[in-house]
């Protein structure tokens, strides 16, 4: 009897799978484990303790960096998602127009451009503006983050719009809804899962960004990843493990929300 092809029946499948999972998660697991180590060492286990977490919470530098990171992530995810939603509508809910594919490519291009290039480009542009206007502050960092979160937020929103049949909007128009009502009564409520997913993704990429932040951030604008980066120059301590674990958990939570809303929409 012919059996259906199943990759899992191939020789060595589970061994390879386990190896890949190990390679992916062993370092992270180690980092997490040693964040609970009651010792200065990050390689030699002695005893379970939350002491590094207390220390991290007591560290003013970490607290300030966390506050900046969160503020930055909220602001950039908020505005990035709004712009991404508008872009997604403009590339799916319009009659095909000349340059639509170009627009689509342009919106996604930042994902392909090496981040260091974007970072240096932003740095030079902002330096020029600062020189011309004399305006300084965290606004530049927020602007830079907003811009690079747009393509991340754009993807799930566009996917959602493409899944939504145009017939629903036509049905609303057929039932006497003028275009703005069609949007707010039908398109928008149905788009919410996409928007939430996009916002989560935007939030996480902003929260985790290093390179662009490193270039654009002014004095005192230290985000959590930048703080960690600075701290390890002075040697890795379990405190860094603890902070990294917190950042990891935060990222996992947001990505989990992203996957949950994504899953719900395919139901």
């Amino acid at each position: 009897m012919a059996k259906r092809f199943d990759l899992r029946r191939q020789t060595g499948f589970s061994e390879i799978a386990w190896f890949c999972l190990f390679a992916l998660y062993a370092p992270i697991l180690m980092l997490v484990v040693f964040s609970f180590n009651d010792n200065r060492s990050v390689v030699k286990w002695t005893e379970f303790s939350l002491r590094w977490y207390y220390e991290a919470f007591d560290n003013d530098g970490i607290r300030a960096a966390t506050a900046i990171s969160l503020k930055l992530a909220f602001v950039s995810a908020f505005f990035g998602t709004i712009f991404a939603t508008m872009a997604a509508l403009a590339t799916t809910r319009t009659k095909p127009y000349k340059g639509m594919y170009l627009a689509y490519a342009v919106i996604n291009q930042p994902l392909m451009i090496p981040e260091i290039v974007t970072a240096i480009a932003s740095l030079s542009l902002f330096a020029l503006i600062k020189q011309l206007t004399g305006v300084t502050g965290i606004g530049y960092l927020m602007l830079a983050h907003t811009v690079f979160t747009i393509p991340f937020a754009y993807m799930p929103i566009r996917a959602r719009l493409e899944d939504m049949t145009l017939t629903l909007e036509q049905a609303a128009a057929d039932l006497y809804a003028p275009p703005t009502k069609v949007f707010w009564k039908v398109t928008f409520p149905l788009l919410i899962p996409g928007i939430v997913a996009g916002a989560m993704l935007a939030f996480v990429v902003s929260l985790d960004d290093v390179i662009i932040t490193l270039m654009v951030a002014g004095p005192g604008e230290t985000t959590l990843p930048i703080f960690i980066l600075g701290a390890i120059r002075r040697g890795i301590t379990p405190e860094i493990n603890a902070v990294s674990t917190i950042l990891l958990v935060a990222s996992i939570v947001f990505v989990a929300i992203f996957f949950l809303v994504q899953k719900k929409r395919t139901k």
């Binding site: 049949t165 017939t167 036509q170 049905a171 057929d174 006497y176 809804a177 003028p178 039908v186």
Partner: peptide, 17 residues
């Protein structure tokens, strides 16, 4: 469409989910 006093029953019903 929203200014025409005609209504449509769509092939796949197009109910607002």
């Amino acid at each position: 469409p929203h200014k025409r006093p005609v209504n449509t029953v769509f092939q796949n019903y197009a109910l607002f989910p």
